[in-house]
Simulated scan of single mutants.
Amino acid sequence: MISRRNALALLAGTPLAGLSSVQAQPPTGDAPLTDRGYIGSAVSRDVQQMYKKGLAFLQATQDARGTWPAGEGAGAGTTGLALLACLASGVDPNFGPFRQVIRKGLRHLIDVQSLVTGYIGPSMYHHGFALLALCEAMGSVDDTLVFDADDPQEKRSLAQTVELAVRAALTAQKRNRHRAWRYSPGANDADTSVSGAVMMGLLAARNAGVEVPDQNIDQALQYFVSMTAEDGTVGYVESGASGGESIARSSLTHLVLALAKRSDLAAYQATLDYLLANLETEPSWPEYARYYQAQALFQSAPKQWSQWNRTLIAKSLKLQRPDGSFPGEVGVTNSTSMSLLALALNFRFLPIYER
């Protein structure tokens, strides 16, 4: 059974030191973004301005299909990440200035999903990010506003789309000898990056009230534990071997353990210790790493996150281009979306960002 929830009412977490608590103030009609942003004065002006420019870039570059030309990384995951970036600052998804962006993006995800398998390709990586976006949209987006009355597309609800996508993820997991995921839904091998993307989608689905069996979550968590070395580094396709830079994988592993409430596992503390010892280390694939690093630190080390977040804001101010985009190695749309989402912990509007 699906439980509807109002995402705009789910504000959680501790406000930044010295600032007043966050207040939800979504805009009405087509009111433009203001210097105060959407949610009051608790978020710094720098973050609000960067987010304003970043969302303007995403709005300007969305294509007629409802997705984005992100280069070789384009696909449903690119659409999902851009949608998450739009939703993360508390924009009104039904009547605000980005309602058409959100509407077109959701329609695209529904349209490309297989009605037979529930798969949202072109890979399980994309499937995971698409599932996460769909789950975060549930309860805040009015299904009746997604499609026009005379639209020829299949008018599935977000809940129906999510349930199909969850079924596809669980079917792929059952086929996999690691009880995890790789790029193909029929793959027998696994990696922590793809598996993390799918796990985040499944945990968001559970948070949204969609049934995800404990057995499936536990099996996937065991895979992450098996990939974690004693020093908190995490392997990619092979079990973790101590040493080397592992910020993205350790952040992702810690995050799924934190969201699954499994602080009892040794890998939880090992990955957290590793992250805290490497707060000043420059990660490889920085936009991707910071996307997960921000969430992991926010979940389990709020004081350290607050300090790290100030450094992130300063870096982001230097990196953002005049058109609002962010450079990176995962395509301009994905790099921009992930950079915005790393900053979006300042807003704390996404249900998956709750503590």
Rank of each mutant, 00 (worst) to 15 (best):
N6I: 13
L8T: 08
L11Y: 01
T14N: 12
S21Y: 15
V22I: 15
P32F: 08
T34P: 00
V43C: 14
Q49A: 09
Y51H: 12
K52Y: 14
L55M: 15
A56P: 11
A60P: 10
W68M: 07
G71K: 07
T79I: 00
L87N: 02
P93N: 06
G96H: 10
P97W: 03
Q100W: 08
V101F: 08
R103C: 10
L106P: 00
D111Q: 09
S114Y: 00
L115W: 03
V116S: 12
G128F: 00
L131H: 02
L132Y: 03
S140E: 08
D142G: 01
R156S: 04
A165N: 02
R167D: 14
A169E: 02
L170M: 10
K174I: 05
N176W: 06
W181P: 14
Y183F: 09
S184Y: 11
A197C: 08
V198T: 05
L202T: 14
L203C: 01
L203H: 04
A205Y: 03
A208P: 08
I217Y: 06
I217E: 07
Q219K: 13
Y223S: 05
T233G: 10
V237Y: 15
S239K: 14
S246T: 03
A248T: 03
H254N: 14
L265W: 09
Q269L: 13
T271Q: 12
L275E: 07
A277R: 14
N278T: 10
L279Y: 05
E280I: 11
P283V: 09
P283C: 04
Y291D: 02
Y291L: 07
Y292F: 09
Q293H: 10
S300P: 01
A301L: 13
P302S: 05
Q304G: 08
Q304I: 07
I313P: 03
A314K: 13
P327F: 06
E329Y: 08
V330R: 11
N334A: 14
T336W: 13
T336F: 10
M338A: 01
L340W: 07
L350A: 11
L350N: 05
I352E: 00
